[in-house]
Nucleic acid binder design. Sequence first.
DNA 1: GATGCGATTGCCT
DNA 2: GGCAATCGCATCT
Length: 209
Amino acid sequence: MLDAFFHRHPVIVAHDLVGCELTVARDGVIAGGRIVETEAYAGPADPASHSARMKLARSILGGPTGHVYVYRSYGIHLCLNIVSHEPGEGGGVLIRAIDPMIGLEIMRERRGEVPDMQLGRGPGNVGQALAVSLDDVGSPVNAGGDFAVTATTDDVRVLAGPRIGISKAVDAPWRFFDPDSKAVSSHRKGADVGAESLLEHRDWLSSVE
DNA sequence: GATGCGATTGCCT
DNA sequence: GGCAATCGCATCT
């Protein structure tokens, strides 16, 4: 996958990541699966984005694309993001859920007694299943390191809906998911996304200002 | 030094 | 479907 993939608006990247395969290597052991749910976060202009408030986030999310950003949520969970934005902008894509495919055993070990379907269901669970840590902040994706994303040729249906768990800009339809996957964290309704409406989504924030 | 809060999860009814 | 648990970090005094 080309570096240019992450060098686009986070909404576009978030949409295109659904259906891709994500792997993380830990001590030579690889785990991962098919991405089935993502959310886009833009730069400081997006009030729901960490980069609107936090220094580290602004520095990472505004930095080079195709790198990893990890944050701690509620003092417990670690959530995995990939820095994605257009030149001169800032932003990233939160990986909310994966359909587990590779390294099932190690992921079961990390997650404990849960159905395989729930191994990577929810952003905090993705972090746990893949053993992501805060030390991974700044790690490159697809550069021969621990993190890799590969496109699949599968024809994937993608729906868009509002982001989850935020208190600002709650209506921005910047969450993308595969409605056919059982590993999606929240099965609320979404609208079908075509190339044209993606452009509308991209401009959602500025359109309501 | 103190305070407030969150890009969540899972247990409860 | 509702809500408590939990703690590091940014912001404020």
